[in-house]
Design a protein around this nucleic acid. Structure first.
Lengths: 349, 349
DNA sequence: ATGAAAGCGCTAACAC
DNA sequence: GTGTTAGCGCTTTCAT
C-alpha cells in the first residue's frame, strides 16, 4: 500500500475564508493575532482552519510583509559534522529558535567555490542574515549582499575587503600559551602541525607558536613547522616522520582537533605517548580518559555560536553601530600530555 | 563606522528588464536557462543582472511554479551537536546539495512539543519533504502534512498511526550481538544502561539484551537493567552504584554514545576499566586510543542519512510505491573492553 | 469590526 | 525570439 494518499491541494486563506463565511482579511487577522476580530468570528475562523488543516504559507506572506523578513538565517560552517562546528550550530539554533527563526546550516568544506555557491543559494532564499566561517582570502564577493542590507557576521576570521562583525578566539595568543606551556616544562625542540595555511586561523596559530619560541630565545628547528595537515592520517604520518629523524622533537602542538586525533594516534601507535609531550587545539570528548589525558587549548564553540547569533539578530533588528570584533576566551586544560617534561632532566625552570 | 551601507532596495526582474531594455519574461528565461533567447539578448540581460547585483527571489517563484517546490527540506534530529546526529546531518546535506536543495536542520531534544513545533514551522515554510527522528509515542499529528502530499521519512523508529518510509538499525538484533559477545567471554552478570525508555530504540536495545540473556539461559539480576539514563553524569552514577553492590556486574552494555562516555568515565575513575567488560552502542572518535580500547556496536549514521535522503527525494520526485523499511547494517568493533573475560576463570567456552 | 482592491516578485499561458 | 496578461497566497491600504 502506498504511504501517500492522493495529495489534496493545500488549503489557502481563501478556502478558510469561504468555509468560515468571512472575508480574506479576517482570516489573516486571526492567523497573525491581530486585533479587531470579535471573539465569535475568531472562533469560527479557527474551526475552519482546523477542519481544513490550513497552515499559512510564510513565504508568500514575506513577499508583501513590511521589511519582508523570511525568519530564516544561513549558517556556513566548515563541516556540520565536525564537533567544533556542530557545537556552534547548536548554539546558533538556540538563539534563532527564540526569535522564531529557522536555520539553514551547510558545510563549505573549506572550499571557496562551495562557499560562494552557498551564499548565493541562501541569498536566493532571502535569508534575513548570514553567519559565515570564511575560508577564502577575500570576501569582497559578499559586498553585493551587504549593499542589499543582508546582515553578515563572520566567525573565526576577520573578513578582508569588507567591514563586518566578527566573533573569534585570539588564536595567536592561545597558540602562544600552548607553546609557552611546553617551554615551561623544559622543551626546546617543539614541533607544530597546522591545518591548511590558506585558513587564517591556521596561520595565526603558527604565528603564535613561532612568537612564543622567539620570546624564549628559541628557534623553530628546520622542518618542525608543518602546514597543510588536513586529515588525521596526514597528521599521524607527519608526526611519525618527525619522530624518525635523528633529532626528533620532544613535544608537539597539534593546531586543530582532527590533527590532534592523528597526532595522538601516532604517539600511541609508537608507544611514545608518555614521553613525547602534546598539546592540542580544540577539546575532544574522551580526551580526559586517555593515558595520559590530552592537554588542550579549549575554544568555546557554544559561546562563539551564541555571540555571533546575538550579533546577527541585533543587526537584523536594526542595530547600525560600528562593526564589532568579539574575542571569545579559550582556556588551557591540563590533563597530562602537555606536562610531560623534556628528557635529559635539564629542565629550565 | 557602520558596517552597513544604507540598504538599497533589492532589484527585481522588472528592474533588470528595464535596464536591459527587454521584457520581463525574457529576463525570466535567461535566469532559468530556458531556450528561445538570442545570444545577443542573453548577454545584455546578464550584464544588467551583474550591474544591479540581481538575485532571483526563489520563494516568489515557487508561488507560481508548477509543483511549487521550494527546494528545501526539513531534518529533525535529537540534537545537531550529537556526533551520531551530526553524521546523519552531513550525509543528508550531501544528497540534498546534489538536488539544489537546502536543509533546515533542527534539534528536538527528544521533546514531543518541540518536535511538533518544528514540523509546524517547517510546514509553514513549505518544505518539499521532512526527515524526522521521531520521539513521541504517536505521529498521527503528521497525518495532516501527509494529506497535503508532503513526503515524510522516519529515522530510527517506525511511525505509529501512519504509513511511511523508515530507515533504521536493527536495534534488537545488535543489542543482542553485544550481550552475546559478553556471554561468550564468560559473563553472566551483565548490567544494561539504557536511554529514556519512551524512545523506541532504547526499548528495542533493552529487549535485545534481555532476549540474548534468556537465549543463554541467563536472567537479568535484579536492578541490573537501568533505564532513563539521559546523561553521561547519570550513567557514571548508575554504574558506580551497581559496582558498589555486594553482587556487582562483571560486564555492562551502555546503549547509547552519551551513556558510554559516562560508563567509561566511571570505570576509569574507579580504576576498574581493565576488569569490568564494557560494550557501547555507537562509535566514538577516540574509542580506539583508550586503554583498553572501547568495544562498540557501531551504527552507520552516514548510510542512515544517505538512505533516508535518497528515499525522501524519490518520494518528492513522485515515487508512490509502498512504504519501505530500510534496515542499515551495523557492526561490532572489538577493541579490548568487550573482550575482558569474566573473573573466576569459569569461562563457559 | 470587517472586507474589497491592489500589489509583492515571480512563472504560466498565450499572444505576436 | 519576444512581450503581455493573469495569478500564485499572502499583507497592505483604505473603505465601509
Amino acid at each position: 500500500m502506498s504511504p501517500q494518499t492522493t495529495a489534496r491541494r493545500r488549503p489557502t486563506m481563501r478556502d478558510v475564508a469561504a468555509l468560515a463565511g468571512v472575508g480574506l482579511k479576517t482570516v489573516s487577522r486571526v492567523v497573525n493575532d491581530e486585533p479587531n476580530v470579535s471573539g465569535d468570528t475568531r472562533e469560527r475562523v479557527e474551526r475552519a482552519i482546523d477542519a481544513l488543516g490550513f497552515a499559512p504559507n510564510h513565504g508568500a506572506g514575506s513577499l508583501r510583509r513590511e521589511g519582508g523578513r523570511t525568519q530564516t538565517i544561513g549558517l556556513i560552517l566548515d563541516a556540520v559534522d565536525n564537533p567544533f562546528s556542530a557545537a556552534i550550530n547548536r548554539a546558533v539554533e538556540t538563539v534563532a529558535t527564540a526569535r522564531q527563526t529557522a536555520v539553514f546550516a551547510a558545510s563549505s568544506d573549506d572550499d571557496t567555490e562551495r562557499e560562494r555557491a552557498l551564499v548565493a543559494a541562501f541569498n536566493r532564499r532571502r535569508v534575513d542574515g548570514l553567519i559565515v566561517t570564511a575560508y577564502g582570502p577575500d570576501q569582497g564577493y559578499l559586498q553585493n549582499e551587504r549593499d542589499h542590507g543582508v546582515p553578515l557576521v563572520f566567525i573565526d576570521r576577520p573578513p578582508i575587503g569588507l567591514l563586518a562583525d566578527v566573533v573569534l578566539t585570539d588564536n595567536v595568543a592561545w597558540a602562544g600559551v600552548a607553546t609557552r606551556h611546553l617551554i615551561d616544562h623544559g622543551h626546546s625542540r617543539i614541533a607544530f602541525l597546522g591545518d591548511d595555511l590558506a585558513i587564517p586561523t591556521a596561520r595565526d596559530r603558527r604565528l603564535g607558536h613561532e612568537r612564543a619560541l622567539a620570546a624564549a630565545g628559541l628557534e623553530v628547528p628546520d622542518g618542525f613547522s608543518v602546514g597543510n595537515v588536513t586529515s588525521a592520517e596526514l597528521a599521524a604520518a607527519e608526526l611519525e616522520r618527525l619522530l624518525d629523524r635523528p633529532d626528533p622533537p620532544t613535544a608537539v602542538v597539534t593546531a586543530q582537533n582532527v590533527i590532534t586525533i592523528g597526532g595522538v594516534r601516532a604517539l600511541h601507535g609508537r608507544g611514545r605517548q608518555s614521553d613525547v609531550a602534546l598539546i592540542g587545539f580544540d577539546d575532544l570528548p574522551l580526551a580526559d580518559l586517555l593515558t595520559p589525558g590530552i592537554t588542550v587549548i579549549a575554544q568555546d564553540p557554544a559561546e562563539i555560536g551564541r555571540a555571533s547569533a546575538e550579533r546577527l539578530f541585533a543587526r537584523i533588528e536594526g542595530d547600525d553601530g560600528p562593526a564589532e570584533t568579539i574575542i571569545v576566551p579559550a582556556r588551557l586544560i591540563t590533563r597530562g600530555s602537555g606536562e610531560i617534561p623534556a628528557p635529559g632532566g635539564a629542565q629550565s625552570r
